[in-house]
Design a protein around this nucleic acid. Sequence first.
DNA 1: AATAAATATGTACTTAAAACACATTGATTT
DNA 2: AAATCAATGTGTTTTAAGTACATATTTATT
Lengths: 245, 245
Amino acid sequence: MTEREMRMKTAEIEKITHLDYFNIAISVDCVIFGYDDKELKVLLIKSDFKEFEGLYSLLGDLVKPDEDIESASYRVLKERTGMDDVYLEQVQAFGSVDRHPSGRVITIAYYSLIDIKHHKLQLSHNELSWQPVNDIRKLAFDHKIILDTSLIRLQQQVMDYPVVFNLLPEKFSLRELQELYEAILGVELDRRNFRKKMSIKEWLVDIDEMESDVPHRPGKLYKLKPEFRKKSGRKKAAPIKQMSL
Amino acid sequence: MTEREMRMKTAEIEKITHLDYFNIAISVDCVIFGYDDKELKVLLIKSDFKEFEGLYSLLGDLVKPDEDIESASYRVLKERTGMDDVYLEQVQAFGSVDRHPSGRVITIAYYSLIDIKHHKLQLSHNELSWQPVNDIRKLAFDHKIILDTSLIRLQQQVMDYPVVFNLLPEKFSLRELQELYEAILGVELDRRNFRKKMSIKEWLVDIDEMESDVPHRPGKLYKLKPEFRKKSGRKKAAPIKQMSL
DNA sequence: AATAAATATGTACTTAAAACACATTGATTT
DNA sequence: AAATCAATGTGTTTTAAGTACATATTTATT
């Protein structure tokens, strides 16, 4: 490279730099929900930032210039859980100036629902761990706020759409399903009313199998009707006759 | 600058450049809703991109490295409408690789509700115009998708929270309020049931004034109780006893 | 003074949510 | 083998909310 070329290159790069608009990095952060042991859990990793020593953080990565933000999330998921074809949905962007100690990083949060049992990730090898959502007090960065926001979003979605099934194995009993709803919503539900509503919704098919390995009378097993198996996808607002304010 | 210095600088900048992570610009786009003439409208500007000649686009700007993303939206709003203290809420980020013709730009969409009458913006001076949401077929960039997504979000919010009042003047009649709901939701509502639900909600106070300048029997005027005047702010998921699936 | 057009209000019907009780099945214990 | 335990599985009543619908009242206009 001649000195002239070098000078030109420097000038060119400085122009861009001084535009000041490319000094912001973009990341995605994934709130990966799982369900186990009657608890809603989230997959976390030990933070490797010295500012957050001892704290856990969500799984995230910077977005590459040639990938869609949703693709970036899927990539993070695939890298961390080994799983494809998972339920994923954007929550929102978080962009406070001071949210990241090493510079300006705006992040876009996604939440994802996976069947924790399918996911044979090597928890022992790395620093990943599933932690009960309700036990989490503090996370690195603004990740606690991101988690809280995502949980609220999940709670809202769960009331309107058949999404919880992504957290369960293919076959499940009504008790398991109810316990899952209770874990997500943080309320106790009446078994009889719950079953009635489920039968009204017509989301499930009775597969004519019974639970096994339960220390009591086994319940019937169900699975989600295939037409409701959406891995994300746009959800329309419900149609309205009168206003359900 | 010596050659050595220059070489170092080039190397340093190239390192950053090659990190490849600062080659993404971030913008905010505001879907500014207004209500006039019994129609829901949105504030648009003629696109100055030759790729989108003749098309309109949302109002947006790049986010500066030292401003929060929400501040950036407020700035755009203030610059374009002259209004402070408006209702503003994030919708989501849009980040397809090819969404912007001049490079990689990820945008964060906000929607905002303003009283169109309060806003004395110089529509004639510039290229701004209020356009009926239902008439819009095509916009620059991916702005039509952003608009559609924002409208769906608005429709959902309106069913749960008292936000529509940001689109109305301080004093309004129940008919005006109902027409506004109808315009947003795109449905006809029963007047008697609408009033009943409004009285149940207890959002309004009767201010003991009557409409004027209407070519028929004037109706009573109401205003929103001050405790519901939130300019945005977090909305919790509704508490649940049983599940309203 | 009569008419038109909107405001204002109330009642019956239907559907969904909430509270609640008992019989049944299979595993475990005696 | 019988009794007990713990869960499954179903149905009814009560209450609240959503929906459909009709008539009287007030003001501006003719």
